[in-house]
Amino acid sequence: MREIVIPGERISKAEGNKAGFGAIRRGSSIFATIFGLVDKAKEPIEVVPLNGSYVPHTGDHVIGIVEDARERGCFVDINSAHSGYLAYFREQSFKKGEVIMAEVSSVNEIDKVDLDFAKPLYDGKLIEVEPVKIPRIIGRKASMIGTISKGTGCKIFVGRNGRIFIKGKDDAIYRAEKAIRIIEREAHTSGLTDKIKKFLETGEIDGNEK
């Protein structure tokens, strides 16, 4: 059973529990530090945020927009407080404004980000969602995104930083975006996969047309 907690709220009094993301131990109790959902039975105790900006971690796949192209690399806007730097590999180069998918290769002490394994994304639509909703959009073992992909025939690239790139026919892109917006709006509720399946089959949400 998941509960909503606010910063400073006591989650557990138990001595043995460990504090994970979004929680701190003070004395013998564990307190939440962020506004989010918590499963008290889990160990360590973690708070899943309901809102918040993207914080880069090594290994994340992100979708960025080239801000500033230089001789040997480029600065990429990755929807975070700092832009990432991509050092070009061999003959590779990107122009300002290009959309790329890349992997975060390192994040240093002051959150400066280096990117690697970049490839350009083109002929599609770039949409932005709340970064905290990305795990829900991907789903367990990519089930949710697979459902949308299969249901609409689109190719979908998801970046951890809250950017999604959809490739396909115009009406298919429209339906895929609509499905993603439903997940974004109702990310904290259960039974979403079935709802999305139904929407993709019939075009209806909870019995209402669109």
Partner: peptide, 11 residues
């Protein structure tokens, strides 16, 4: 601030 998802010690 809490609504913005910022980590805080307390309200």
């Amino acid at each position: 601030l809490a609504d913005a998802g910022l980590p805080m010690k307390d309200m």
